[in-house]
């Protein structure tokens, strides 16, 4: 078996190079044309299923008031594309204020999660003190608590603090997530200890070691934390729905739910609103895919 493997790729390579370039898989083996066609057909079908709904929403949001959006068979492209619906959303609900609120919440969530989980992760991974095991256990337990089960108690806690119906109240419960702390802990644990030891011998104190050596070495994980903190805050629904009651404080997701409930019959309007909410994240994803995928792997292993 192992002989075959070693021989086959080397034997076939010169031949492929001589002819027209062929499609090969990750092992350098040729993919048959029939299989290739089938694969692309399936890929396109799944593409239509996963991305199609977003495109349809975009198309609906660009259709003018006179265009029939209910036609059968459906019309996939707007006959006369217009941004009119986006202006109308802003006239109906303060959508840009909501977007700003979402941005504030998301930015704060990124900052607190990066700083808080880097600090705590470092304390769990590198520093020696009595109670470290207890602290680690606290974060592990916190990660296992299903948030959906404690929202009412979180809400009453927020009321007691006088922070319900504020953006701070939206941010606080998730502002240093236990999962992120444990991700950072693992990242620090994976660093070779020798570098820090050398710095220690050179007289660097704990803050210098943390800021100059440890943090710069875990930038990748920190980026994952930042992206998932942003996405989590921007997309969150249940918690802001419970903690916010004043329409002027709504985040985008709550505003959209409100728009849908109040103006359910105006599909063009709701479509424009959803596009406003989803476009920034799709742009972010397009730029930083690598970290999104990496985050899935790290989060799943822990979760």
């Amino acid at each position: 078996m192992s002989v075959m493997e070693k021989v086959r790729p080397t034997a076939s390579r010169p031949r492929t190079d001589a002819r027209e370039p062929r499609v090969t898989d990750e092992n350098g083996r040729r993919v048959r044309v029939g299989e290739l066609v089938l694969r692309y057909l399936l890929l396109l079908a799944v593409l239509a299923l996963t991305v199609g709904p977003f495109v349809w929403q975009l198309s609906t949001s660009l259709k003018g008031p006179t265009e029939d959006i209910f036609s059968s068979p459906p019309k996939f492209l707007p006959g006369d594309p217009t941004l009119h619906n986006y202006e109308r959303v802003a006239d109906t609900i303060p959508v840009w204020d909501y977007a700003l609120n979402s941005l504030k919440v998301a930015a704060a969530n990124v900052a607190t999660n990066c700083v808080g989980s880097a600090l705590a992760g470092y304390a769990l991974a590198r520093l020696r003190y009595r109670g470290r095991r207890a602290a680690t256990l606290a974060f592990v337990l916190a990660m296992l608590v299903p948030v959906e089960g404690i929202i009412i108690a979180q809400f009453t806690t927020m009321r007691e603090l006088g922070l319900n119906n504020t953006l701070i109240g939206v941010v606080l419960p998730g502002c240093v997530s236990a999962l992120n702390v444990l991700l950072m802990r693992n990242a620090f644990l994976n660093l070779p200890y020798e570098i820090e030891e050398a710095a220690y011998v050179d007289g660097a104190n704990v803050w210098q070691r943390f800021l100059r050596i440890a943090v710069p070495s875990v930038k990748g994980t920190l980026a994952v934390v930042a992206i998932f903190a942003f996405m989590g805050a921007w997309d969150d629904f249940l918690w802001p729905l419970i903690v916010l009651s004043d329409p002027s404080k709504f985040t985008l997701t709550i505003g959209l739910n409100y728009l849908h409930g109040t103006f359910a019959n105006d599909e063009r309007l709701v479509a424009a609103g959803t596009i406003i909410a989803v476009a920034p994240l799709i742009a972010l994803f397009a730029c930083l895919q690598r970290y999104f995928f990496r985050g899935v792997g790290e989060g799943a292993v822990k979760g």
Binding site: T112, A120, A138, V145, V176
Partner: peptide, 18 residues
């Protein structure tokens, strides 16, 4: 100092999760 590092995180998960 170690507790200073862990404090923000412990405070948040203590008050809002545990």
């Amino acid at each position: 100092s170690p507790w200073l590092f862990a404090a923000p995180g412990l405070l948040i998960i203590g008050a809002f999760i545990l």
